[in-house]
């Protein structure tokens, strides 16, 4: 009598768990973007943004957006290299992490500029929504970057489990794909 081998899961548990978490997070951002959209549509003419408040730097943020999208593309390359057991994979993962860190750093500079220009959480509805939505995204980006850095360290040491790497990637792709939606809705 032969004992049947246990089936390999079609989707690693880490990826499935992260996906369900991502679904909940997408709904969180959808709720915030929905509230933002309705508030903006209902604002009186000339009050969005409020007079005296700075405009959001949509053009400068295009560079941040490009960095983040590039980071996602580089991580896809890293994933392929990792699967083919290419030793360069961990350097490509580090490049993706560096691009993501560049995005967060530039966002920090932008926040600093806006705060100095008088746009705070309480200065206007736009300010409140901006820091809530963009800040929420930045928080997710920082958490994902910590996980990505841990993945890089483990990969360089040769102790990385595929589940951890794929789960981290799933979360990073969520951060990358969520951003263009936020950028298009909030900045324009």
């Amino acid at each position: 009598m032969s004992v049947q081998e246990p089936r390999k899961p079609v989707l690693p548990n880490a990826v499935l768990g992260t996906l369900f978490f991502v679904v909940a997070e997408v709904m969180l951002f959808s709720g915030m973007i929905s509230a933002f959209t309705i508030s903006k549509a209902g604002a009186l003419p000339g009050t969005w943004p409020m007079p005296g408040q700075p405009r959001l730097p949509a053009e400068a943020t295009a560079l941040n957006t490009a960095l983040l999208i590039l980071s996602g593309i580089v991580l896809i390359v890293a994933h392929r290299l990792y699967k083919s057991k290419n030793p360069v994979a961990h350097w490509v993962t580090l490049a993706s992490w560096a691009l993501g860190t560049g995005f967060v750093a530039l966002q920090g500079v932008e926040w600093w500029t806006l705060l100095n220009a008088g746009m705070t959480l309480k200065s206007s509805p736009l300010g409140g929504f901006f820091y809530l939505i963009v800040g929420g995204h930045a928080l997710h980006a920082v958490i994902a970057l910590v996980a990505l850095f841990m993945a890089w360290v483990k990969m360089a040491r040769g102790t990385l489990s595929p589940g951890f790497f794929f789960g981290t990637q799933t979360f990073w792709y969520f951060v990358v794909l969520m951003w263009p939606v936020i950028y298009a809705r909030v900045y324009f």
């Binding site: 709904m27 959808s30 709720g31 973007i33 929905s34 959209t37 309705i38 508030s39 903006k40 549509a41 209902g42």
Partner: peptide, 15 residues
């Protein structure tokens, strides 16, 4: 004449 009516409907459908 709610100017946000379209947004309400649109966002409700999306969500």
């Amino acid at each position: 004449e709610d100017p946000a009516k379209g947004s309400y409907v649109g966002m409700t459908l999306i969500i």
